[in-house]
Structure formats: C-alpha cells, structure tokens
C-alpha cells in the first residue's frame, strides 16, 4: 500500500514537473490540449489549395505562422526547410509541415509569397489566409510562431521553434523535441514558449 502511494505520489510529481505552468501563458487564445482550429481551401504559393482535412493521415501536424517581410521569419526559413526534410518529406512520413501567412500588407500578399517560395525553394506548402481567420483562431501574434498538433488533433506545443534566432547559438530545439516526443508516444517536454518575431497585425 505504502509503495503504491509512493509510486502514485512519484507519478504525480512527475506529472507536475512535466506540465509546465506556462500553458496558455503567452498565447491569449489557446491552451495546450485545446482542439486545433482548422482551415480549408487556402491558396498556396505553388498554386494549389490546402485544407486541414487533407492532412488527416498524419500523426503530427506542424503549423508555422510566418510571412515574407519579417527578418525573424526570414531567419527561420532555412530551419523550416530542414525540419520538413527531416520529418515530412517522405510520402509515408507521419508528420506534415504547413506554413501559413496571415499578413495582408503588400509585401506579404500571395504574389510575393510565390516569389519567396521560388527563391528559397520551399519544400513545404506555403498557404495564404487573407481572412486571417486561422491566425486569429490560433491566437498567433508573431511571425514566425509554431504550433504542433497531435493525433487527437489537439494543441501539443506552441511558441518558438527554438531558443535562438542565430542558428549557431541554438541550445534548445523546442519544436523538434515536441515532434520527437509525440512520435515516440511520450509527453511533450516543453509545451509552450514565448514566440519571438514580428507582430502580426489583424485587420479590424
């Protein structure tokens, strides 16, 4: 009995440690575990359409809210390309990476996205939500800002990709840790971090 109690207490402590107190701390709309908001028929930079439902076979979905003009977003483009190569490029991969732009300034419109995607050779769909709805629903306020959605289609991670804008200075890859944990069926070690980047301006 004592043992069981100790074990339970131990598990409880573990659970407390594993669940960061900051869930929903930075994101004003969503908390970890909330159902993921969906999007449909968003035009992409490669002249296609994408819907959340197209990704139904994937175990993990990564959404990157990003844009063309922001230097921080630009600084992360190569890392999103690498992430896609690592996790989402094989046809049978369990992970999908989707970038969505919800900025509506001229520099961020679809024609400029097409240019940017070509120049950089984006290997992930780069979608445009002119209505800004998916950005609002996700509570996204930065570019880039990342969301990881699990198999149950709940928010499992949100925030920054890693802990440093300079690739050489990165110590913690929060986003990859979250994906690895979900693929291994383990709890996500850090569930929310403060997103870093340019402000997303929502139209009134």
């Amino acid at each position: 009995m004592f043992r069981t109690t100790m074990l339970l207490a131990g598990l409880l402590t573990l659970a407390l440690v594993a669940t960061p107190a900051e869930a929903g701390k930075y994101n004003k709309k969503l908390s970890i575990g909330d159902p993921a908001p969906v999007f449909s028929d968003l035009p992409t930079a490669d002249n296609k359409k994408i819907s959340f439902n197209d990704l139904k076979d994937k175990d993990v979905i990564v959404i990157a809210i990003t844009c063309n003009h922001c230097p921080v977003a630009v600084a992360y483009e190569d890392r999103i390309i690498e992430l896609t190569k690592k996790y989402a490029s094989a046809p049978d991969s369990r992970v999908a990476v989707v970038a969505i732009n919800v900025n509506t300034s001229d520099a961020d419109k679809l024609d400029k996205m097409v240019e940017r995607a070509k120049t950089k050779g984006f290997n992930f769909p780069y979608a445009y939500d002119e209505s800004q709805k998916i950005g609002r629903d996700l509570g996204a306020t930065r570019t880039p800002e990342f969301f990881v959605i699990n198999k149950e289609r709940k928010i499992a991670y949100m925030g920054a990709m890693d802990d440093n804008q300079k690739p050489s200075a990165v110590k913690k890859k929060y986003l990859e840790e979250a994906i690895d944990a979900l693929l291994a069926g383990k709890p996500v070690p850090t569930e929310e971090t403060r997103p870093v980047g340019c402000g997303v301006q929502y139209n009134r």
């Binding site: 004003k28 609002r136 996204a140 306020t141 301006q201 929502y202």
Partner: peptide, 10 residues
C-alpha cells in the same frame, strides 16, 4: 500591445 489578436491597439 499586439499580443492578443482580438485586442490589438491603435
């Protein structure tokens, strides 16, 4: 601030 999409200032 701009931190809440539904409550951004001007």
């Amino acid at each position: 601030s701009f931190d809440d999409p539904d409550n951004q200032f001007t």
